[in-house]
Structures are given as C-alpha cells and as structure tokens.
Design a protein around this nucleic acid. Structure first.
Lengths: 268, 268
DNA sequence: TCAGTCGAATCATTGGTACGAATTTTGCCG
DNA sequence: CGGCAAAATTCGTACCAATGATTCGACTGA
C-alpha cells in the first residue's frame, strides 16, 4: 500500500511529465490539494516536498508552486579545449537565452596553504615532502549568482622562487595562462585525468550557489601531469541544473556545433 | 534569524563533517534531539529530512539514523576505451570492497520503435525520414540492485534488411560488438560527442535503482558519428553515489592507475 | 543451548491546529 | 485613472497527538 503522500506526488509528477503542467505553470495550491485528496495539509506538503527535493517544482511563500524548467549550458570540457588561459575552465557551447547573455564576472583569490590529505595524495606529495600548494580559486558569476567555483592546486615546490613562478602566486590573471607558464618552467602538460561526479550540495554550498533544494552539484576534477609528475589539480564545482559537460573524440561535423545541440537529461 | 530546523541540521551536518559522527555511525535518536534542542518531533524530523535529502544520512524505521558513506566506482569513459563490445559502457577502474566483487549480471532488451523528438533530432532524423530506431537497452545489476541502465539508439535505416543488420535487432549480445558491426556495414565510427549531466531521479527511477533520497543520477550521453552522419546514441543512467566517470588525455603514468585513485566529491 | 516469542525502542505516517510571513488581489480615495 | 492601503490568499514554521511498522534485544520454553 503506497503512502498517501507518495500517491499525491506520483500524480503530480505524472501531470508534469505529461505536460499538463508545463514549465512555469502553477500547480494547485495546498488547500486545493487538501480538498482534492481529502488529506491534511501536512500530507499535501510532504507530497510537494517530494517534488521539491527532486528539483521538479519551485515553492514560493505566498504565491504557490510552479514547475521548474531545465536548460543547462553545455561546456566543452576537453583537455584539448583548454584555451590560451589554461586555468580557464572551458569555453562553452552556449545556447541563447536569458541571463546568460550577460557578461560573466570573475573573482580570483590566491592562497598558499598546506594541502589536505586528499589533495596531497593526488598531487603525489608524500609525508616527508613539502606539502604547501598554491591554490588559485576562481569564482565565476553570471546574473549575480555564483555560476561555478574552480579551485586550482599547484605544488609549491614546482614553482618556488623562480622568476615566473611568482606569477602563479600573484592575485592577477596569468598572461598566456597557467598551462603555458608551467610549460615555460619546464613542466609541459603531457596528460591529464578527468573525474566527474555528482553529489547533493551541503547547506553551505546551497547558499553559496544560491540553489534551491533538489539541485545536485557536478564536480569535475582534472589532474594534469608532466610526464609522470602531477603538476596541478583543478576542481570545478557547478550546479547541475545549469551545467552539462561535453567531451568529443575524433572528427566532428561542424554543423552539429552550430545546431546548438544539447542533451536534456530530463528526457524520457 | 535561522529557522529552528535548519539550526539543528547545521549542527548535525557540522558534526558529521568534523568526523564526530563517522560514516556508519548512528546519530542521536529523534527523542534525544527533541530533548537536546527542546523542540517538537516534527521540527527534529525536518532537520533530519534536510540531511536525508542531501544524501548525508540514512534514516531507517525502528533503528535510527546513520551516516552514509560515499565510495563510488570510477569508470573509464573514454570513447577510446570502448572495448571489443562497443555497446558495453566502459570497463571500470575499480577499487576492492564489498558487493562490487560480485559478478555483474546483465539483462538485455531490444525494441524497435519510433524515436521521440529529442532522440530523432540527435540522430538527425527529420520529419520526412523514417524515424524508427533500434533500441538496445541493457540493465546491469550488481549485488541484486540495478547498477546502471544503458539505452542505445540506432537508426533503423542504417541496418535495415542487411544480413548482419539483423544482428542489431536480435536479443543477443553482438559478437565483436556493435561498433565493429556498424563498421563492417560501412559505418565506421569516426567521432563522438559525450554530454554528461546530473539530475535528481524521478519517483520511478528511485525505485528502479533502489536509491534513497538525496542521491542524484548521472546521465551520460554519447552520440557517435560516421563522418557527419550520426550512427548511434548511447545514454547511460547511473546513481551518482556509486559512479564516477573518468576521462584521460595524453600519456598517463601507469602507476597512477594502480594507485586506485579516485576523487571523492565529498572532500572539502 | 538454542530457537522462538514478546516487548521496548524507534522511526513512519497522518491528522489536527495556530500563528507568522510573503504575495497577490481588491478596493478605496484622491 | 493612479496610487496606496487593507484584505485575502498562500505558503512557512512550529506545536501536539495517535497509530502503525520495523528493529533489536531480552526473555522464555523446549
């Protein structure tokens, strides 16, 4: 026997999927649902919560529940697509629409710290080594909200006390990009690993990214090597409702790029 | 002023993050929390719900709340890593532990249907074209649970009525793999797009994958081309708490593979 | 000793109520 | 007609209460 609130949630979910409530449309109010199903408000609210925590509706005090839309930006995430600025995440294949036209705003912060265990292991910094790393954190804003946060970790030992190495610690953009800088210093990037995962945001991350409930975060880690030596780790965190990652292999028909293709994960 | 239930949730989240409640440990019971915070049960439950919907705890009737662990399998998802069986998702770089040692079980189902709008557009099937596609759905189970679901879409027109083309419609594994089969039929795969996104599961998907609340799904789409002609679309859906995707570029130090590396998205 | 039973602990579900806060609508007045 | 204020609508937070389901451990009887 299915619990009452799940039954309501099922019904509403189906109504949404079938298009009876298109994106942006208003769902019945809690009172209406109470009447329709003959249950208490608590039960109705649990049903709505079920949809909320799945990212399907937005509930706003005083005005009701509306169906969410899903229209992510698709980033070209290939390592080969790293632009002149090796630190820049990726150029992105965008589709026109809304606030995205706004020019993104970046905020860079540079720190030198001792690496945590996980970062140290990835960068191959053992117990005896100097575990200090240069952390270049770049927050990218779009439409007033944090769009993605990127943390780049460089072993301090790679660049310590060299003329150009100091640029890495400077709080400014690196002309030509960090990748080129590393190459000039004798650490050309010869390979990289990308690991992509997803998780739910912590409470802090929710407020940091200004995302409602039911929105996962995508985490994209890139560990770059020079030969067999790790030279940097780039971790990019972004809300999954606004981002998709794109990789390509081999020849690609250029028309496809122009077609503004993207894969909608909500498709059935 | 922060709502009461968020305050409790914050406290608990911090306790978990600081390791005061390690993975697997039991949180205080609802009664205890009621006493500690001097609130009603409903409020405590809302706090726990906050952690639940973020995938941080498991709440089980009759036994309490326990901290969840996160230990995903890392799949090698490169197109270049496609094995002999082109349809197989990817070999995976695994780490020893628990149920994963069990031999995976696969269930294949083949259908021929008219493509939906989204799939038709991706496969380049216009209004006037024959929009029927061969769908090969492969469910992979591990430890009795659905581990990942893969849907491969082939334009029917590619393979219709050719001797080997019928293999694509057969309900058996394709010897040598679908990719090789397509190549033999004059459609060698020359390139591919991968799009990776994440979303929360629908109610159906939750039960399908037997996943609790707060677990996102990763969706991995691969659109493969022969020249400028799309020849197949592979969509893989998998719970994000058990899967990570790995791409690599350039030379890789083989020791790194052996190190059993993985990037834990819960790292701070 | 061991298996089965029973009960306590604990969470799940659902109902009810009250008041506060945000939003929208309505209506009045200039 | 425009603007502003009051009212109605609607969701947010919080409390209390009752019953059912599940788990686990303690007890009992063979």
């Amino acid at each position: 026997m299915e619990p009452r609130h799940l039954e309501i949630a099922h019904d509403l979910m189906e109504d949404i999927d079938e298009g009876r409530y298109p994106p942006g449309a208003a769902l019945p109010t809690e009172d209406k649902l109470m009447g329709r199903y003959g249950t208490s408000r608590n039960t109705v609210r649990r049903a709505l919560q079920e949809l909320t925590s799945r990212g399907r509706i937005d509930v706003k005090q005083g005005s009701g529940s509306t169906v969410r839309s899903y229209d992510p930006v698709t980033h070209l995430a290939d390592a080969s697509a790293e632009g002149d600025d090796g630190e820049r995440y990726a150029s992105y294949v965008d589709r026109p629409g809304g606030e995205r036209d706004a020019e993104p705003h970046e905020r860079l912060r540079v720190m030198v710290e001792a690496a945590g265990d996980a970062v140290a292991e990835l960068l191959g910094l053992g117990e005896g080594d100097d575990r200090s790393v240069v952390i270049r954190r770049c927050d990218r804003y779009l439409g007033g909200r944090l769009w993605q946060r990127q943390m780049a970790y460089y072993p301090r030992s790679l660049t310590a006390d060299t003329p150009r190495g100091s640029e890495l610690v400077g709080p400014e953009d690196i002309p030509g990009g960090a990748r080129a800088l590393l190459e000039e210093m004798g650490h050309p990037q010869t390979g990289s690993w990308d690991v992509i995962g997803a998780k739910m945001p912590s409470l802090k991350e929710s407020t940091l990214f200004s995302i409602g409930p039911g929105v996962p975060l995508m985490v994209h880690d890139r560990l770059a090597y020079s030969g067999d030596r790790p030279i940097r780790l780039i971790r990019t965190v972004m809300p999954a409702d606004r981002h998709q990652l794109l990789y390509h292999e081999g020849e690609l028909p250029p028309e496809a790029l122009r077609a503004g293709m993207g894969v909608n994960v909500h498709d059935r």
